[in-house]
Write a protein that binds this DNA or RNA. Structure first.
Length: 766
DNA sequence: GCAGCCTACATTTTT
DNA sequence: TGTAGGCTGC
């Protein structure tokens, strides 16, 4: 046993060695929070607490895994027995054990957001509601936030405030939709993410005996990232800790960034009230060990503008370090290049590795420019989040098969696979089955599995085959492990076959993805930590994976990390680039419009800043393409909010390499990059087209950056006058070199009077 | 029932 | 930009 107490400062030691009773640890960024949590658990076990009786809740599987790993280092194998995981995974486990009490079976499906929305759309159609008024997204969010506040469908319908809200949003039927949605989920033996928490609350509310069991089981409850818990989560932990009163929560109100998801910052404020001011032990960890003084002070200067805060003074004894560099770029692509160059140079000068760097952005869509720029400089990178592996169509397809094999009530899985691969069962037939099932008030599977008893005809043969296929899968479930079943399903369902026959690049990639999924299942089965190797157990794990949990694609860890700030929480890097610091992007326009919460955006900025250990760089672009449209951007107000004495303007703004000499003359250009005659033709006809519109021609006086595709170059090479049009777009037909007609969809954008951005780059050859 | 075309539309963060 | 969903014609 190592002496883990020795290296701790006073408040850290207090938190680790605190005995029984509620405790709240307010942990500033970089104050050694994870360390304190792990040592506290080790300490508890050291003092004789059975690991089985410790419940430790985190937000990501990754955080849980890492903590388990670190505890293992201190206390050894016993660490495995601790109940540790995300709220969702721990309570899914409990719900599975206690499913019967709620009328579910233990093989219930977990609906992801797509499933939920698809179900909602189906309900909207059935209720004959206009899906333009009732956007599935909006309805889903309302239902979700109700669930997170523990408002069930019946209460929702009776709540005058919610009704009034819905009325004013012109969606008076949300209550009824909610009710139907809940009914359908139940009927499908499925829970969505919010249900996992909501139903746990119901379980504990309606079944005191079950609550009693777990209350006594868990002698100690620990909650990480407490500032991000919602009402539903807080109530569960409170109930669980009600007997022993040993609850320790760790959080930082300044890092609360999930209010949009129902996180309730007031939980921190209520904690003291709920457990009694005199009873709650409060520990404040205020010394930052992570960052330079400059970074800590800059972060403080930003967060100081928020009104809603607990009193806390984050300080550090670390050296001052360099000032925060601000990079100004003219376009998003130039921002990419400048940041990549900056990383390249810092790497050389300071002898750093790729994994010392992180690029943090507000939205996943921003990653592209950085990817390209890094690739050009041969700097390896990885992207966390974004299009997750498990959101790919082919993966979801196979998983839907597996889900349906496990749970034949799963309506969403059924809809997905009934005609996949194509077997001649169209919408009409599916609708017929649904009507039949609801008329006779029997499950859909009842109808499907005895189709010949219900309908005759062409489709019934196909359905009969489908149901035989599923039945054959069901027989395997008890005999085979998850991998054996899954690979059998992949082969016999026709999914793999269809992809194999698709010889396009995408088809090949999809085929490989499915293989990759099978590998992942194999790994799951081979992992000795997983006791339950059944398919049902795998499906549960997989549906609760988060983007941060995705494993490395290869063994190489020396890569620049790119991710959203949300995904970066809990991580740290020597050098951090916070990019896209533009008004409306960060702070996000959407956020300000929908919830008018600038403070949460500011906390997000705070989180981003405090990820950096040594060197921090801000950057912004003056123009950016977003969804194919050029947007002129202004620097973010956050840039002004930082105490300016910590900032320095970057000298690294290299003059853009001019590809065009003079005003509109085509200059240095690689022969190989010359556009084809076909694309020259498009451009010529384009010129005609714009001329027909009688739009006054403009001269190209400025090309903000050399971000031109060959077609742009073609425009100039063709010696055409560039037309002055505002957001012009349309279809242009033209003959290519072989005389065949081709179409191009074009779009132009104009900046200012004379500054013309050729958006022929967006020219799509059809 | 299905493929292919076309239009409209959405684009914050994530368990 | 890119895609989902609607419409049309086989």
């Amino acid at each position: 046993m190592i002496d883990y107490i020795a290296g701790l400062n006073e408040p850290q030691r207090e938190a680790v060695t605190h005995g029984n009773g509620p405790m709240m640890i307010i942990a500033g960024a970089g104050s050694g929070k994870t360390r304190v949590l792990t040592y506290r658990i080790a300490h508890l076990i050291d003092r004789g607490v059975d690991p089985f009786r410790i419940l430790s809740l985190t937000f990501t599987n990754k955080a849980a895994g890492e903590m388990r790993h670190r505890i293992e280092k201190v206390i050894g194998n016993e660490a495995r027995n601790i109940w540790m995981g995300t709220f969702h995974s721990v309570f899914a486990k409990i719900l599975r054990i206690e499913a019967k009490a709620l009328g579910y079976t233990s093989n219930f499906s977990i609906y992801d957001t797509d499933d939920s929305k698809s179900l909602l759309r189906a309900i909207l159609r059935e209720m004959d509601l206009d899906d333009k008024v009732y956007r599935a997204n909006a309805v889903f969010n309302r239902i979700s936030s109700a669930k997170n506040r523990l408002v069930g469908p019946d209460e929702y319908l009776m709540n005058p405030i919610l009704r009034a809200d819905d009325e004013s949003a012109r969606m008076p039927e949300v209550g009824r939709i909610y009710k139907e949605y809940a009914r359908r989920c139940f009927q499908a033996n499925a829970m969505d993410f919010d249900d996992l928490l909501f139903n746990t609350n119901v379980l504990f509310r309606d079944h005191p005996d079950i609550l009693h069991k777990y209350q006594h089981k868990f002698q100690h409850v620990l909650v990480d990232e407490f500032q991000d818990t919602n009402v539903s989560q807080y109530l569960i932990t409170r109930k669980l800790a009600a007997v022993h009163q040993n609850i320790a929560v760790v959080g930082d109100d300044a890092q609360s960034i999930y209010a949009f998801r129902g996180a309730n910052i007031e939980n921190i404020l209520n904690f003291q009230k709920d457990y009694g001011k005199d009873t709650v032990k409060i520990v404040k960890l205020e010394q930052n060990y992570r960052s330079t003084n400059t970074i800590v002070q800059a972060a403080n200067s930003v967060i100081a503008r928020n009104r809603n805060q607990l009193e806390k003074r984050v300080f550090t004894d670390n050296e001052n370090g360099p000032l925060i560099e601000v990079i100004k770029a003219s376009s998003d692509n130039e921002e990419g290049r400048l940041v990549a160059t900056s990383i390249f140079e810092a790497k050389m000068q300071q002898n750093l590795r790729n994994n010392d760097f992180a690029i943090l952005y507000r939205t996943n869509a921003q990653s592209r420019a950085f990817e390209e720029a890094l690739r050009k400089l041969s700097i390896k990178y990885r992207i966390i989040g974004g299009l997750s592996f498990y959101t790919r169509k082919e993966i979801k397809d196979l998983i839907a098969y597996l889900r349906f094999a496990v749970n034949q009530s799963d309506e969403e899985a059924f809809k997905r696979i009934i005609n996949l691969p194509k077997r001649g069962i169209g919408d009409t037939t599916v609708a017929k089955i649904a009507v039949l099932a609801s008329e006779k008030n029997i499950p859909i599977w009842e109808v499907v599995s005895n189709i010949t008893a219900h309908i005759a005809g062409r489709a019934s043969v196909a359905i009969d085959q489908f149901s035989d296929l599923i039945k054959s899968y069901m027989l395997l479930l008890d005999k085979k492990d998850a991998y054996e079943v899954a690979s059998h399903v992949a082969k016999t369902s026709g999914i793999l076959k269809e992809l194999y026959e698709d010889k396009t690049v995408e088809g090949l990639a999809r085929y490989e993805n499915v293989q990759e999924l099978l590998n992942a299942i194999k790994e799951f089965v081979d992992n000795p930590d997983n006791e339950d190797k059944s398919l049902s157990s795998f499906l549960q794990t997989v549906s609760l994976l988060t983007t941060a949990d995705e494993k490395e694609d290869d063994g190489d860890n020396d890569k620049v990390t790119m991710m959203t700030i949300h995904a970066a929480k809990g991580l740290e890097f020597k050098n951090v680039h916070i990019v896209g610091l533009e008004e409306d992007l960060f702070p996000s326009q959407m956020m300000l419009e929908s919830r008018a919460d600038l403070e949460e955006e500011r906390r997000l900025f705070y989180v981003a800043i405090t990820r950096a250990e040594k060197r921090l760089t801000f950057s912004f672009a003056e123009s950016r393409y977003h969804y194919g449209r050029l947007k002129i951007c202004e620097p973010s107000r956050f840039l002004m909010e930082v105490d300016q004495s910590f900032l320095t303007m970057s000298k690294a703004v290299a003059p853009p390499k001019p590809r065009f000499k003079g005003d509109d003359t085509y200059a240095s250009r690689n022969k190989d990059e010359m556009p084809s005659a076909g694309s020259m033709n498009f451009v010529r006809s384009l010129a005609q087209k714009t001329a027909q519109r009688q739009i006054p021609p403009a001269t190209v006086t400025h090309t903000p950056s050399a971000d031109f595709a060959p077609s742009n170059t073609a425009a100039l090479a063709a010696g055409m006058k560039v037309e002055h049009a505002k957001f012009g777009f349309g279809t242009v037909k033209s003959l290519d070199e072989n005389g065949t007609e081709r179409k191009a969809i074009i779009q132009f954008d104009v900046v200012g009077e004379k500054t013309l951005l050729l958006s022929f780059a967006k020219l799509r050859i059809v």
